[in-house]
Each structure stands twice: as C-alpha cells, then as structure tokens.
Design a protein around this nucleic acid. Structure first.
Lengths: 154, 154
DNA sequence: TTTAATGCAAACATTTTGCACCCTG
DNA sequence: CAGGGTGCAAAATGTTTGCATTAAA
C-alpha cells in the first residue's frame, strides 16, 4: 500500500497542468487504487462510493476517469463487455488480461518477452508503439473442468 | 477471390444449425468479404448496402453480424472507437491490429511466434485459450514524420 | 475573487428488442 | 404453411454535454 506516495504524485501531476486537486478526484483516485487488480467500470465505482456515503455524480466519475486517462494517471480497457474498465496506470505496468468466458474472471499477466516482441512487430511495420491492449479470452482452470459451459452474464 | 467457396461454407454452417439462408444474410456476408482487411462497423455496412440499392435495416445488420459472430463466421473487434468492427473469421486467421493514433490507419499483422507465446501464457495460468484480441496503438510511418500530432476524428 | 469543477438532466451514439408482417424451407 | 427472419420504432446502455451553482486556489 503506497497510496500515500501515489497520492502525492497524483496531486503534482494535476498541479503541473493547472488542474485542481478536488475532494472528488482524491476519492476516485483512492477508490481505483483500493483494489487495482479489479478493473472497474464507472457505474461500479459510482455505486461503491455512494455506498460509502460519498455523493459524487456519475458525470463527475466519467469526467474524472477520462481526465486520469488523458493525463496518463489511469488506463481504460475493453474487456469484452460494453463498458470500459479502468485501472491505475503505473509506468512499466503494461500488461495483458486473461478473461474467462464462463465465470468472467479477469487475471492480469505481464511478460517482458511479449513486450519486446510487440515492439519488434511495430518496428517492422514502421509504427512507433505508444500503447497496446491485449486480451486473451478462454476458460479458466476451474471452469474448464466442467463440460457444460454456460454463458456468464458479466 | 474465393467468395464462392466461402459462400458455400457459409450456407452449410447456417443449415447445420437450422438457420435460414436468406438474401439479407447473403448480401451482408458478401459485403464483409468484399474488403476483408477493412474492418467495418454496422453503420458503415448499412450505408454501403443502401448506396448499392439494398434496403436492409440496421437492426437486421446487427442481428446478422451477431449471428455470424456466434456461429464463428465472423469476429468483432474493438479498435479503440466506441463501436465494434467486424471481419470474416477464417480459421487460423487470428491476428492483431496496428492502429495509428493520428490518421486512424489500421494494419493487420499475423505472427505465428506470438500465437505460440500467447498459448504458453494461457497454459501457464491454467487457461484454455479460445481467442485473443491484440491492438497496438501508435503512430504509422507517415504520421510519425511530422512533429505536430493532430487528433484524428476517426 | 476568478475560473475550474460539479450536479442535474437532457442529449448522444450504439446496440437491442417487441411486435406485426414476410418469406424460406 | 409454420416458424424463423425482417422492418420499424421504441427502449436500453453507456457516455458526454450544456448550464447554473459550488468551491479550489
């Protein structure tokens, strides 16, 4: 838990851009750091904060998350559902996701070799890699033990 | 152009499932095969067919594309825009996309080594790989020659 | 104080759906 | 000619935005 250190960095990133460090932004920042491995969507975050007694509108959640993404403080991922999922963006934390098509389990993985390979591919096609998004869909250990596959309702 | 052969397969896939081979389905099938490398969204396909004189509703386009995806005849990709893009799904054609953040150019690539690597990663985490989705965002050769980067309006 | 940030509701964009009618098998 | 397929319009979803109000700096 180095939320403190992150928070400090978070504040300075905003200040450097002339943006304000508001209570709402702090709360949302802390919320997405609480379980960074669980990539949450805007509505989840909204409900979660409401339950904790914070009255932050969904519009503000969206504006704040987008602002985090634009300033490089967070990233937005498409995990095969219709909404976006958000996660803190720590430098060098580029990774992929394994997603179970049965139970919806999401597991992060990070492979340095893979990163090098993607950079080589980009280079080969004359592209300058900026970021990548990699999702592997399949069936997790537990779910692939059963023959009957049911659709998860995400 | 082996649309003919594909069409035949297309018909039998439907029949095998007790689905009907309608004119609409044929037209949409041919349309997504016309330039399979250009991944198009539902609205594009709708406009394109309308221009050609086919009166197929957007609802049918969606229902048909979803049906194609469910039966494994096509795949749906998220290329960083708010809508989905569709492409024919030929077996073994699993690939990634390089997407230029400036001009929107989309280039497909296929790397056998990469596929093996992803399979190894899945295996390591106890996942059975079913499909994957890989997007590399960056700047294409042409666009990275200019220092001033403008946002594309996709 | 001044101007960015917020809440609210309305607007948007994309995709899905209910229902009456149509057409394939 | 029965049941799946289609068009149309309405609904559902996820996200953005205009505007008046609030609150950082």
């Amino acid at each position: 838990m180095k939320i403190k250190a992150d928070s400090k960095n978070f504040g300075s990133v905003l200040r450097r851009r002339g943006l304000r460090l508001t209570r709402s932004r702090e709360i949302i920042w802390e919320e997405i750091h609480r379980h960074p491995e669980i990539h949450r969507n805007a509505a989840d975050i909204y409900r979660s904060l409401k339950k904790k007694g914070y009255k932050i509108s969904l519009a503000t959640i969206y504006r704040t998350l987008n602002l985090f993404v634009e300033t490089g403080l967070a990233r937005s991922e498409d995990l095969g559902e219709k909404h976006s999922h958000f996660e803190p963006d720590t430098p060098g934390a580029i990774h992929g996701h394994l997603i179970c098509l049965t139970c919806g389990l999401v597991k992060e993985f990070k492979e340095e070799k893979l990163r090098e390979e993607l950079e080589a591919i980009s280079h080969y096609f004359g592209f300058k890699l900026s970021k990548y998004s990699l999702q592997i869909f399949g069936f997790c250990d537990k779910c692939s033990r059963y023959t009957i596959k049911e659709k998860s309702k995400s």
